[in-house]
Design a protein around this nucleic acid. Structure first.
Lengths: 194, 194
DNA sequence: ACTCATATTAGTACCAAGTGCTAATAGCGG
DNA sequence: CCGCTATTAGCACTTGGTACTAATATGAGT
């Protein structure tokens, strides 16, 4: 028993990380030590008690929820919009948006910003994307700010179509171009397709 | 004081929904009643105690996290893959993926599934999307299961390019087609652009 | 083998935020 | 004024701890 303490404490950290909902009693059983030992371990490792752990997790969720609701409607933040004409949004690329391996933003985030901006610029109850062509010109990295500019380039009211071009750039350099053919959903046509 | 009870209980429900972290004591102060009254109210309304409320929120987060971590690398779940050849993934469309207004899945989720599958099928350390063409053929609704099939259709090793076609379907019906021109990132070329 | 430090266990008092129960009191409508 | 609901109070008990003290192992060095 030279270093079973260190080993146990490492396992303890791991165990609690995997399941923060475990009580000292359960941990004591798991490691075949007394509850007091577990308490001392937590003390040394500055691991808070069960209720505090749970609360932290809960607070995080709660905050996330409140935050993600508005974010959900448009990916990025709209800073200028003229309905049916053009719109601009910004999106800050954070570590969670990139490939871990090379810090390059994953394509679907660029697409999501552009596509949701294309939806937003449409002056309709709701618009759906029908077709799209994308060009990923330069890699975007974590920490950079993506500015997407959408422009309605053409309309075809009879077919309920509009065409939107979105150009995204970082520091004035174009990194992404997308064109979107949008279907304008009108009251009567809404919900009557398969 | 004919119906202040009903009114108070409605306000109580609202109050706890807004802030699940509130104690009976704080609630008692808020409504100027005794702690016991609050307890009776919770009993009648089947609102669990603070710790249980917190735990529920936390469990939800925790579950979400465990789910979203692996999902982060590939959107959807890969159920079959033959590197450099083809791959299949499934993605269950949930309420959070659709427009609230008409329950139709937002385009970037279809794109994300297809694009990340295209990345996964590449037998490289990492691949980037260069160009893409998308067709959104039919709307997809919450509750449906998207099956995406990716096929590597062409290769151009000199230019580090590969072409992937992804077809997504719901119940054997094609709802989305995407073609992706992928850049194969090799060891030496990695990180030397921009 | 003895000693000393560290590790572990045990036990007590106390806390928060409750549940569960009984009992007393308030308020008001008929 | 009676009766009913609503409210309040009080007490014992529960969980999952903290904080602290004290006893006991255990193991390593000399």
């Amino acid at each position: 028993m030279k270093r079973p303490k260190k080993i146990r404490q490492e396992a303890l950290v791991q165990s609690i990380k995997e399941n923060p909902f475990v009580t000292d009693e359960e941990l004591a059983a798991e490691f075949s030590v007394s509850v007091q030992t577990i308490r001392l371990d937590r003390l040394e490792l500055s691991i808070p008690e069960l209720r505090e752990r749970i609360k932290h997790v809960a607070v995080k969720t709660f905050d996330d929820e409140v935050k993600s609701l508005p974010i959900d409607e448009v990916i990025g933040e709209i800073i200028d919009i003229e309905l049916d004409e053009r719109a601009i949004s910004i999106f800050d690329v954070k570590p969670e948006h990139v490939f871990q391996r090379n810090q390059i933003a994953r394509g679907h985030h660029l697409f999501a910003q552009a596509n949701s901006l294309a939806v937003a610029v449409m002056n309709d109850e709701l618009a759906l994307t029908v077709k799209s062509e994308l060009q990923f010109l330069k890699p975007v990295k974590a920490g950079q700010r993506l500015v997407a500019k959408a422009q309605v380039v053409d309309r075809n009211p009879e077919k309920n179509r509009a065409y939107v071009k979105v150009v995204s750039s970082v520091d004035q350099v174009t990194v992404f171009i997308g064109t979107f053919e949008m279907y304008r959903m009108t009251e009567q046509s809404e919900g009557d397709e398969e």
